[in-house]
Amino acid sequence: MRDEERSAPVVVGETYEVSIDDIAKQGDGIARVKGFVIFVPQTKKGDKVKIKVNKVMRKFAFAEKVE
């Protein structure tokens, strides 16, 4: 496991049920797991979605919406 993955409360490949509580400048939805920011494209504020984490960085992660 890489250092940046160790400090994050989410894991690449795992799925999570999240609420989109904000929108980033680039238009991606922002969800949080234990305060950790996850960017989720093709979502809007207020959405409750299931996501799959694609990439974990030190301070944030990227995920995709899954059905």
Rank of each mutant, 00 (worst) to 15 (best):
residue 20 I to H: 02
residue 29 G to L: 09
residue 10 V to Q: 06
residue 38 I to M: 05
residue 43 T to M: 03
residue 63 A to Y: 06
residue 37 V to N: 09
residue 63 A to K: 05
residue 7 S to W: 09
residue 53 V to P: 05
residue 17 E to L: 07
residue 22 D to A: 15
residue 18 V to W: 02
residue 37 V to T: 13
residue 57 M to C: 11
residue 58 R to V: 13
residue 25 K to G: 14
residue 46 G to K: 03
residue 18 V to D: 01
residue 51 I to D: 00
residue 61 A to R: 04
residue 65 K to G: 08
residue 20 I to D: 00
residue 50 K to C: 01
residue 8 A to W: 04
residue 34 K to A: 11
residue 47 D to W: 05
residue 21 D to H: 09
residue 57 M to S: 15
residue 59 K to A: 14
residue 49 V to P: 00
residue 62 F to E: 14
residue 3 D to L: 10
residue 58 R to H: 12
residue 41 P to M: 10
residue 33 V to H: 05
residue 30 I to L: 14
residue 45 K to G: 00
residue 27 G to R: 02
residue 40 V to F: 03
residue 67 E to H: 01
residue 60 F to H: 13
residue 45 K to V: 09
residue 58 R to C: 04
residue 31 A to Y: 07
residue 33 V to W: 01
residue 3 D to R: 05
residue 20 I to S: 01
residue 16 Y to G: 03
residue 36 F to K: 00
residue 39 F to P: 10
residue 27 G to C: 10
residue 1 M to S: 12
residue 7 S to P: 02
residue 2 R to N: 14
residue 2 R to T: 13
residue 53 V to Y: 01
residue 23 I to W: 04
residue 36 F to Q: 05
residue 25 K to V: 15
residue 62 F to D: 13
residue 43 T to H: 00
residue 41 P to S: 10
residue 54 N to F: 02
residue 25 K to F: 14
residue 24 A to R: 09
residue 12 V to M: 02
residue 23 I to S: 03
residue 12 V to G: 01
residue 32 R to A: 05
residue 14 E to A: 12
residue 64 E to C: 04
residue 36 F to R: 02
residue 31 A to M: 06
residue 43 T to I: 07
residue 16 Y to M: 07
residue 31 A to D: 00
residue 42 Q to F: 12
residue 42 Q to L: 13
residue 19 S to Q: 13
residue 1 M to I: 10
residue 61 A to E: 07
residue 41 P to Q: 11
residue 12 V to H: 00
residue 27 G to Y: 10
residue 32 R to W: 06
residue 31 A to K: 06
residue 60 F to A: 07
residue 38 I to R: 06
residue 15 T to Y: 02
residue 61 A to T: 03
residue 26 Q to E: 15
residue 4 E to W: 10
residue 24 A to E: 08
residue 63 A to G: 13
residue 65 K to A: 11
residue 52 K to E: 12
residue 64 E to T: 08
residue 25 K to E: 15
residue 1 M to T: 12
residue 20 I to W: 04
residue 11 V to R: 12
residue 33 V to R: 02
residue 56 V to K: 00
residue 37 V to I: 15
residue 21 D to L: 07
residue 39 F to E: 11
residue 47 D to L: 06
residue 62 F to Q: 11
residue 41 P to F: 09
residue 46 G to F: 08
residue 46 G to Q: 01
residue 38 I to H: 02
residue 5 E to T: 06
residue 3 D to Y: 11
residue 1 M to R: 06
residue 50 K to V: 06
residue 42 Q to M: 13
residue 56 V to D: 06
residue 30 I to P: 07
residue 41 P to N: 12
residue 38 I to E: 01
residue 22 D to L: 09
residue 57 M to V: 11
residue 19 S to I: 06
residue 59 K to S: 15
residue 67 E to K: 10
residue 51 I to E: 01
residue 50 K to Q: 05
residue 17 E to P: 03
residue 3 D to K: 04
residue 13 G to N: 01
residue 37 V to Y: 13
residue 34 K to F: 08
residue 63 A to L: 07
residue 67 E to Q: 04
residue 6 R to F: 13
residue 37 V to R: 12
residue 55 K to F: 12
residue 12 V to Y: 00
residue 1 M to E: 14
residue 7 S to E: 13
residue 58 R to D: 15
residue 23 I to F: 01
residue 18 V to S: 00
residue 11 V to L: 07
residue 50 K to N: 02
residue 30 I to T: 06
residue 46 G to H: 03
residue 28 D to G: 09
residue 17 E to F: 03
residue 65 K to H: 04
residue 44 K to W: 05
residue 66 V to W: 03
residue 37 V to A: 14
residue 8 A to N: 04
residue 10 V to G: 08
